[in-house]
Design a protein around this nucleic acid. Sequence first.
DNA 1: ACCAAAAGTAGTAATAATTCCTATTTTTAT
DNA 2: ATAAAAATAGGAATTATTACTACTTTTGGT
Lengths: 123, 123
Amino acid sequence: MNYSRQRELILETLKEYAIHPNAEELYIKVHEKDKNISKGTLYRNLNRLAKEGIIKKIDGLDSSSHFDHNIHEHYHLICTKCNRIFDIEKETTQIPQLNIENDFKVLSYDIIFKGICKECSNK
Amino acid sequence: MNYSRQRELILETLKEYAIHPNAEELYIKVHEKDKNISKGTLYRNLNRLAKEGIIKKIDGLDSSSHFDHNIHEHYHLICTKCNRIFDIEKETTQIPQLNIENDFKVLSYDIIFKGICKECSNK
DNA sequence: ACCAAAAGTAGTAATAATTCCTATTTTTAT
DNA sequence: ATAAAAATAGGAATTATTACTACTTTTGGT
């Protein structure tokens, strides 16, 4: 993977997010910094970075993919009321143990919990 | 949820699949049985059925959602080479234990493993 | 069985999300 | 300095999904 200024900018901008933006949301911020950056470049790099394990791709919230710069191992909670993604620490979850290593080489995994967050429950 | 012939047909057709089709793939089969069924109806019902826990929505393979009629608890393996979804039984995985029940009411969860399947490894 | 309200649908339009394409630019290794 | 490889910009094209509206079906009460 050769260096590219654009990829650096994309990664750097993603890191400024506390939430987990999708490509469109991220594009707005990236575009503020570099008017010439293209959507193709954004998508290409987000997918590349995710494949390399430098960022995480989160699916399941809506029809778009969301991205997480946090590579420290953790899982995700999706509130189906307010449509927000919350992080959940590994420590509160038992690590899945697979007996399938011979059949499938696991490179990454995510656990996505769906439900209602505290805030929405109290409404 | 009122009865609808179309929803029955969609569910019945999904159950004929061993693999995990996306809406488009399913539409082809459903459309063979009922020429008048619309995409809107398909999407509406797939999402409804998934929300009710009657079927499972699987995200993460590509930009489309895939669906699984198998409600028996299990997780998923996605091969990033051949782009196929494999089922993995609960028995081979420790059930995630959450300490967050007070903060988040979990309604469902899925574990998505990504990696290379045996077949693709042997190539 | 009849009927009104509620729920659901068909068909199509619109939007959103993502990928593809090509000429140009940048990076990298020599 | 330079050529090959990798990456980008910009826009077109495609794919996936949702929205809209008039019409049809379901349901529960009579």
